[in-house]
Design a protein around this nucleic acid. Structure first.
Lengths: 138, 138
DNA sequence: TTATGTGCAAAACATTTGCAGGAGT
DNA sequence: ACTCCTGCAAATGTTTTGCACATAA
């Protein structure tokens, strides 16, 4: 009845994916839109949203539901954790080993069927931490 | 010049706080609005947003930036982790010990000044896990 | 009394969606 | 050809904000 039709390889999809792979900055949909628009000026924001969503459903990319108001996207799909700067909102990877074992602790401490976990650290990035040390000002 | 004026104790604030303490469901701003409106029918949604924001800045309550489209609020401010059902979106606490030590791992694996972390588990809640094995229903 | 807080409505964002025309296979 | 996909714009959903009036301290 219904065959699984593979997703078509359109120019828009290629460019979105290429641009996402160029950066490590976990851009928002709108930032991806800006990047892609330099090469495809007529692309619509809706197309960017649709394709980022689609690619993250497929597992081709990762949709990050981290703090802040916008979702972010990551071309690196192997499990890893993130840090977010509470000052400027920037998000970076944390290259520490993924603790698979904590899924079991959570399974014992909840009534859920645990599938995965994500850790979001919060702190200050280089730049913001160095800009901070001015405690006394009015 | 500027003294720190304490936040005024208004009826709206009392009721918002009381209602939030009544539940363990991590309601969204709109859900809090519905709860509060039963007691204060003329309260505005803006007031609820303003006060939830204010109280979370003060540390009186917790603003959860978990997955999904809306922010959620929690009257329990002691650090703890959360699980979110990928099916129905419900959020619950996970009563496992908080791993303070992983902050150090993260500090070594990033250029950030790490302040804290939050773990969000994802899985299926009781009801959704039991509802799964039934592909045909209406 | 007076700075803060509230209700209301509009604005500001972020994201999704309907549709007519366009492009991949 | 025949879908699926895109651009555009409008709709939706969430949160913020401006302002005149109300109220806690």
């Amino acid at each position: 009845m219904h065959e699984i039709t593979p997703m078509r390889l359109t120019t828009q999809r290629q460019v979105i994916l290429e641009e996402l792979f160029k950066v490590t900055s976990h851009p928002t949909a709108n930032e991806v839109y800006d990047m892609v628009r330099k090469r495809l000026p007529r692309i619509g924001l809706g197309t960017v949203y649709r394709n980022l969503e689609l690619m993250s459903e497929t597992g081709l990319i990762l949709k990050l539901e981290v703090g802040g108001t916008q979702k972010r996207f990551d071309a690196v799909v192997t499990p890893h954790y993130h840090v977010r700067c509470i000052q400027c909102g920037k998000v970076n990877d944390v290259d520490m080993p993924v603790q698979q074992s904590i899924n079991e602790s959570a399974a014992q401490s909840s009534h859920y069927l645990i599938l995965s976990h994500h850790i979001e650290f919060t702190g200050l990035c280089d730049q913001c931490a160095n800009a901070q040390p001015k405690p006394s000002m009015n």
